[in-house]
Amino acid sequence: MSRYLVDKFLYTVDRDPDLVERYRAEPRGTVLWWEAERANSVLNCHGGEASTWLRFTDDEREALATHDHVALFALGAHPFLTLTLFIAMFERDHGPLEYQKAFGARLAHFSMPYPDIAT
């Protein structure tokens, strides 16, 4: 499980409006492209530094590719990173706070202790 990589994906996509739209329109392709092209770049580094070993698990890749925030939460993705990105993608399709309430309701079956979100 690579919570760091999932959180890095959520963080970097959320901060680029073009990537937000790309992820909304073509989630699976965006996840595969990001994993191949961006996953191993050093976060917030503009130079040529990169690692070579970071990869999503099959479960992480599938949850990201299907916009499954419940599965992402169960896998340990940080809920605030997931929520802010998903608000950017889907809030426009709903009334005021409607999306946020539905997002929370889909997580209501989780009880404490919640999945570990430490990276």
Rank of each mutant, 00 (worst) to 15 (best):
A65I: 03
D58Y: 09
H109I: 06
L75G: 06
R15E: 05
N40Q: 04
W53P: 03
Q100N: 11
S51Q: 13
G48H: 14
H78F: 08
M1G: 09
M1E: 10
E49A: 15
Y4R: 04
K8G: 00
T84P: 00
V6R: 00
F56D: 02
T52M: 07
A118H: 10
H94M: 09
K101W: 11
D18S: 09
T66G: 02
E37I: 07
R61L: 14
L5M: 01
F56C: 04
L10G: 00
W53R: 12
F103P: 03
R106K: 11
P115N: 07
R15G: 08
L81H: 05
T84L: 08
A39I: 07
A105N: 12
A118S: 15
I87A: 04
R106E: 09
P96Y: 10
P17A: 02
S2G: 03
P113K: 04
H69K: 07
T30N: 08
V20Y: 02
A25E: 13
L5R: 00
Q100R: 14
L83F: 06
A63R: 05
A39W: 04
P113N: 02
A102H: 04
D18F: 09
F80S: 12
A65M: 07
P79A: 04
A50D: 08
R106C: 05
V31C: 06
V6N: 01
T57H: 02
D59V: 13
A25H: 10
Y11M: 05
L97C: 11
G29Q: 13
A74P: 05
W33Q: 11
A71I: 04
A39D: 03
L19E: 07
A36N: 14
L43D: 12
T12G: 02
Y114A: 09
A25I: 10
G104E: 10
N44F: 15
G95M: 02
R38Q: 11
W34L: 05
D59T: 14
T30H: 06
N44L: 15
S41V: 11
H94Y: 14
H109N: 06
M112P: 07
F73P: 03
K101N: 15
D116E: 06
L75K: 05
F86R: 01
Y114V: 07
E60N: 05
L10Y: 00
L5T: 00
I87C: 02
R38F: 06
P79M: 08
E35W: 08
G76K: 01
G104K: 09
A88E: 11
L43K: 13
V31P: 03
F90G: 00
P113F: 03
A65C: 06
N44H: 15
H109E: 08
L54C: 09
S41C: 13
L32A: 13
Y114H: 14
W53A: 13
R24D: 01
L83S: 01
H109F: 12
A71P: 05
G76N: 03
V70A: 06
N40G: 08
R38A: 12
L19Y: 09
F9E: 02
F86Q: 01
L19R: 11
P27H: 03
R3A: 03
D59C: 10
T52Q: 10
S41K: 14
P27W: 02
A74S: 12
D7P: 00
P96M: 08
L64H: 02
D7H: 00
